[in-house]
Design a protein around this nucleic acid. Structure first.
Lengths: 197, 197
DNA sequence: CCAACACTTGACCGATCAGTCAACTCAGGA
DNA sequence: TCCTGAGTTGACTGATCGGTCAAGTGTTGG
């Protein structure tokens, strides 16, 4: 029962937060969904905000798994990025099926919410985004080496643009309730990776 | 005192929501900040969510004012877009000064929050984003006519990309607490408006 | 076998939540 | 002059909030 409980709490909180937001989910709901009592939750987490950070890290772990899979070097670097976009869109579509509405990016939404919760939580959120950016940056760097993108493209700046664009598309997908919108990232990324005059 | 009260409530709610989110702001706080009693709030708004929608529309009115000013035809269309980015970034910087932390896009944040509040609120949010997109689309269309962007660029799709990118940059700006990040939109927009091969 | 400790229980806290209500004020039209 | 109704007041509700706590339970290492 030991460590399993903590994970059950985080998983339950994650599911509930996906459907709305951290602020709109109560600790009571989390406990009910996890089949756990209040005291257990506060045995593992000093505050609701700490639980939110744990959910962020859980979501990051899941996202990292998707990234590791999509960015495997069995295909050229630009194809990896496209593959990631496809899987990201697919996950949103699956969530839409389960929730009845298109959610935003599980990370982006929580990042936005935690960013206004003091500097500590904000820094943690930024750290996650930065780690995510590196996946893009590494692929861009490798694509440069292979001549798939021009040598004038700066990998870190380009990677940040890709992440920003994907996050924005996730917001639009949520607002328009259409996960397919994020598929346009594949076209947009090609433009963002073109060498500027 | 009549209609002034409603506006005071919305303005107070807007300021409070900017600093965090609708869910984290209580109706009590709004009333206190507006110098108004609970009954008055619920005289004008049937629910807290309705107040949220009113705040969204208030923010949209402010954003539209900025858009109308930036997109004035005293400069070429692409320069209007750059001008808007500058003002948007400047507003974030001013808010950062006032709030102690960089807020996200006042519209984007609320759109994200209302999107999970049932289909009605989500549709209203989408409507606002669509209206915003049109400003970009009109400028792109005019730029096409002037030959400033290639004829192969589809204005509606390009405009949606610009908006998505800006929203994503606003998220990054919030997470990194640096409003200047959105200035990169000017470079990114140039890439997004290039004719793809 | 026992002591220590991580974990769980469930009642409990004061504060706060969104929302209601009947009584009141007051301006404008008949 | 009086009536009507939009706007305002402030006390109020029951539910729920995040968080606490003392008293357990079960496991584990010595």
């Amino acid at each position: 029962m030991a460590r399993d409980t903590r994970e059950r709490i985080v998983a339950a909180a994650r599911d509930l937060v996906h459907a709305s937001s951290l602020a709109e989910v109560s600790t009571d709901e989390v406990c009910r969904a996890a089949g756990v009592h209040k005291g257990s939750l506060y045995h593992f987490f000093p505050s609701k905000e700490a639980l939110g950070v744990a959910v962020l890290e859980c979501n990051w772990a899941l996202m990292r798994a998707m990234l590791d899979e999509a960015f495997g070097d069995d295909v050229p670097p630009l194809a990896r990025i496209d593959r990631f976009v496809d899987r990201f869109a697919h996950r949103l579509a699956v969530m839409r099926q389960a929730l009845g509405a298109t959610p935003g990016c599980p990370l982006g939404g929580l990042v936005a919410e935690l960013a206004s919760h003091g500097d500590e939580a904000r820094t943690q959120a930024a750290r996650v985004l930065h780690a995510w950016t590196r996946y893009f940056a590494d692929a861009v760097t490798e694509a440069k080496g292979r001549g798939e993108v021009g040598p004038a493209v700066e990998a870190p700046a380009a990677a940040r643009r890709l992440l920003a664009h994907l996050q924005g598309l996730a917001l639009l997908a949520m607002a328009y309730d259409d996960p397919q919108l994020v598929l346009d990232a594949k076209q947009a990324f090609r433009l963002l990776l073109a060498t500027s005059g």
